[in-house]
């Protein structure tokens, strides 16, 4: 089992992708999808991904819902600034945030959350000092952003992955 299916979630994802791509549940497509899932799942193992441990799945789902709501909210906020023509008056800037999160998957998810939310972009991260640099489009208060990122995303991510 472990030998043939080292990454069941990855293999299942590949099978689902294949079936959706072909819009079919015909036995031929199912067979091809299973073969692809097994082969590509094994190939993925050769990349030697660091071990993934999800401690709290419910928390992960809750974080997902929070992120979707945040993406929609910041879309509207950015749209309002652009449409109101306030864009030239906006103050943008860099914010440095000290992070306690060290898990590579947690950091990857945090990077995607910050960048996918319009208005903030992950710029760079120094692993040794645990310092993250982000750019904020509508920067009012640096301290508030440090608090937002830490409390809203970092704390749940640490509970999920560490």
């Amino acid at each position: 089992m472990r030998r043939w299916l080292p990454y069941p979630a990855m293999s299942l994802f590949i099978l689902a992708t294949w079936l959706v791509l072909n819009q079919s549940l015909a036995p031929g497509h199912l067979l091809l999808g299973v073969i692809l899932g097994l082969v590509l799942g094994a190939a993925f193992g050769r990349l030697q991904p660091p071990p993934l441990r999800i401690r709290d799945r419910r928390r992960l789902l809750r974080l997902g819902a929070v992120v979707v709501a945040d993406v929609i909210r910041s879309n509207l906020a950015l749209l309002r600034i652009l449409v109101a023509g306030r864009a030239r008056a906006v103050r943008s800037g860099f914010v440095t945030i000290p992070l306690q999160l060290t898990d590579p998957y947690g950091l990857a998810v945090l990077a995607c959350i910050i960048t996918a939310t319009p208005g903030t972009i992950w710029m760079s991260y120094r692993a040794r000092e645990g310092l993250l640099l982000i750019h904020v489009f509508d920067l009012v208060d640096e301290g508030e952003w440090v608090r937002t990122i830490t409390e809203r995303y970092e704390t749940p991510l640490r509970e999920i992955f560490e």
């Binding site: 864009a87 030239r88 996918a116 319009p118 208005g119």
Partner: peptide
């Protein structure tokens, strides 16, 4: 949303501001 992002990409002043604009079109 996509059009507003494009307008932002053209109108905003600095590069780091402009990077934010197209995310409107590619998310919502």
């Amino acid at each position: 949303f996509a059009l507003a992002g494009a307008v932002g990409l053209v109108r905003l002043k600095s590069f780091y501001q402009r990077v934010h604009a197209p995310t409107l079109g590619s998310s919502l």
